Amino acid sequence: MSRRSLLRGSVAAGATLLAAGCGVPAAYVEEGARAGRDLSARDRTLDFANWPLYIDTDDEDPRKRPTLDAFREETGIAVRYTEEINDNDEFFGKISPSLMNHQETGRDLIVISDWMAARFVRLGWVQEMDRAAQPNVAKNLAAQLRTPAFDPGRLHSVPWQSGITGIAYNRRRLGRELRSTEELWADDLRGKVTLLSGLDESLSLLLQGDGVDVTRWTADDFHAVCERIEGLVRRKHIRRFTGNDYIKDLSTGDVLACQAYSGDVIQLQADNPDIEFVVPEEGAELWAESLMIPNLAQHKSNAEKLVDHYYRPEVAAELAAWVNYVCPVPAAQNVLADSGDEELVALAEDPLIFPDADMRSRLTIMRDIRSDERQEFAKKWNAIVGL
């Protein structure tokens, strides 16, 4: 089961939390109140919260994590690593009371999806990182990921891994190629198409399929997409909306085409070479899940060192070879290509891990759903998902 095979959280829950917490002006933390007492110099530890199945492990002993072990051996900093993030909204609910009340969370480093990271930045709940202490980040971060709208200059966030939300399909069963989002609505796919149920996960691809610039989409664009999708649901063209269980549907042949994540498809292809992944002609979303340092973290300097460790090309390559998502460190491609290992060389040549120039030209980072839009849009989208 891939890391993304764990459900990432419902938009409805996010809307509720937004109304209960994010919409309260008092929740905002001013810049001067975000830093805590940094104990890094005397306490050579840090607490790192991540998603399950999202870091390299030793084949013989899954409790060992080679890239973390190498960091400890090199720096003397021990990492207390927990796989406690199963859902963006659930994790938000877990740590938001502390952040809202100007208390430390017990975590020095967290990984959350960029749409949730945008919420943390807006609320002033994460600290700016010291890039002078992170030369590898400054040098090696992929250009396309450097300036997200929610965090200009990536001052508060650094991508852990990236990925693409595109189209997966079974070419042998379908009997033809798919090259555009518009082709999902062809008559021979009636009842054999699924879309992702999460608004943040599904919207970009659908907007791009309508020719919308997703860096500046409007409420009118959103409602036009909803009108189209509602019609397709009522005509039973769309079979259903899914979490990551589209993997099973696609594997069994119950669906022929679906919205899908690039990392999942790499793993599916190992068992079924008929499965293909497409970045549509109209474009697809390049997303990231990012490392952030919460307010009042007690080991900020240690956390910054760990972030920079993962931006060394050889470390990024080791991680990419295990997780199979889009690597945010392009220089890691040469490390794998020069490894002499047949499987690693193949990964270096895989455009779903290292997109080529043509593919990157069709990838865009969607602007975030603003706080004043989220509740209305989530209600509209969830009504369609529930039809």
Rank of each mutant, 00 (worst) to 15 (best):
D220T: 07
D220W: 08
D220E: 13
D220Y: 09
D221Q: 03
F222W: 11
F222A: 07
F222K: 13
A224K: 08
V225E: 04
V225L: 00
V225H: 00
V225C: 04
C226H: 10
E227M: 12
R228A: 07
R228T: 08
R228N: 11
I229A: 01
E230V: 08
E230G: 15
G231T: 07
L232S: 07
L232C: 12
V233G: 10
R234W: 06
K236F: 09
K236E: 13
K236N: 14
H237V: 05
H237Y: 10
H237G: 09
I238P: 00
I238A: 02
I238F: 01
R239E: 01
R240P: 00
R240W: 06
F241W: 05
F241T: 03
F241A: 09
G243T: 09
G243P: 04
G243D: 09
N244E: 08
N244I: 03
N244M: 06
D245N: 10
Y246G: 00
Y246V: 00
I247P: 04
K248M: 07
D249K: 13
D249H: 15
D249C: 11
L250N: 02
L250K: 14
T252E: 14
T252I: 06
T252K: 11
G253I: 14
G253V: 13
G253M: 08
G253S: 10
D254M: 11
D254A: 12
V255Y: 06
V255G: 10
L256H: 05
L256D: 02
L256F: 08
A257E: 06
C258Q: 02
C258G: 07
Q259N: 12
Q259A: 06
A260G: 02
A260C: 01
A260I: 01
Y261R: 10
S262W: 11
G263M: 00
G263T: 04
D264R: 05
V265C: 01
I266E: 12
I266D: 10
Q267T: 10
Q267S: 11
Q267C: 09
L268G: 07
L268R: 11
L268E: 04
A270D: 11
A270S: 15
D271I: 07
D271V: 03
D271L: 09
N272P: 09
N272C: 08
P273C: 08
P273A: 08
P273D: 13
P273G: 06
D274E: 11
D274C: 02
I275D: 03
I275Y: 04
I275E: 05
I275W: 03
I275H: 01
E276N: 12
E276S: 14
E276F: 06
E276G: 12
F277C: 01
F277I: 02
V278R: 09
V278F: 00
V278D: 02
V279D: 05
V279R: 01
P280K: 13
P280T: 01
P280W: 00
E282M: 04
G283A: 06
A284P: 02
E285T: 14
E285Q: 05
A288S: 15
E289H: 13
E289Q: 15
S290Q: 07
L291W: 01
L291Y: 15
M292S: 14
M292K: 03
I293M: 14
I293T: 13
I293F: 09
I293A: 08
I293D: 03
N295P: 05
L296Y: 08
L296I: 12
L296R: 15
A297W: 04
A297H: 06
Q298A: 15
Q298T: 13
Q298V: 14
